[in-house]
């Protein structure tokens, strides 16, 4: 796709000059793919697992702090 600008310079000698400027390209809009049931279940399980791990780590840290005190 090109955008063409016309410059008429009437005052000089009636010449027509044409400047060809390349337009920058935008990336296209992105339809998001829907997720399969399996993928959703996997992600859900993964999130739940990460959550339990985080909770356990927090509990451990608390215990350590208490024992240090």
């Amino acid at each position: 796709m090109k955008c063409t600008y016309f410059y008429f310079s009437f005052y000089t000698s009636g010449q027509l000059s044409v400047e060809d400027v390349a337009i920058m390209v935008l990336c296209k809009p992105k339809l998001l793919p829907l997720k399969s049931v399996t993928l959703e279940k996997l992600e859900k399980m993964q999130r739940a697992a990460q959550e339990t791990i985080r909770q356990q780590e927090a509990a451990q840290r608390e215990q350590q702090q208490q024992s240090q005190q």
Binding site: P33, L34, L39, L42
Partner: peptide, 18 residues
């Protein structure tokens, strides 16, 4: 130019599986 592609050069799909 119309449909975005994934890294492997395929057009993006409408549905993802694992």
């Amino acid at each position: 130019a119309i449909r975005p592609v994934t890294q492997s050069g395929r057009p993006v799909t409408g549905f993802v599986r694992p």
